[in-house]
Amino acid sequence: MEVEKEIKEDLLKTFKEYVSNIKISRARRVFIDVKKEKLKDVLLHLRDKYGITHISTITAVDVNENIELLYHLLKDGVCISLRIHTPKNAPDVDTVTDILPGAVLYELEIQDMMGVVVKDHPDPKRLILPDDWPDGIYPLRKDWKVDWVEGGEIKEE
């Protein structure tokens, strides 16, 4: 629990009001809410100070009016999840691939499945969905239903 607490104290001190709601749910699991504009600074800080370079994945969750993005960072079994929010009607986020190059596919995945626009992505292309998939339809959002697909065609609402 030492490292987790240390990171908590340190982040609260360095970023003050930009981080909130720090939750150590059990040993080696930390969840932190971060303001969207400060995400890259927090990542840089964690990388330079604690040597955290491994990103496990980015989880996108559809929560009411917002889309929640969780950046799961891993270092020696300690998982730090940074949570940011972005509005559902125009979700966007800056790419973090300049800090963590391993995130390149995960960003494409959230772009495909949740429609979060990743700004300045080095190679923005379809990753999972077919090439002829219509724009503006994101299968992992809560309002998406399987019935939208009929006879191989995508039915517009």
Partner: peptide, 24 residues
């Protein structure tokens, strides 16, 4: 990643498999 919502069904399950991580 599992997010539960108090019912018997999960709110969101995110799976990240090792193969995807090794592609780059």
């Amino acid at each position: 990643y599992i997010k539960s919502n108090g019912t018997e069904k999960p709110e969101r399950v995110k799976i990240r498999t090792p193969t995807l991580a090794n592609i780059p």
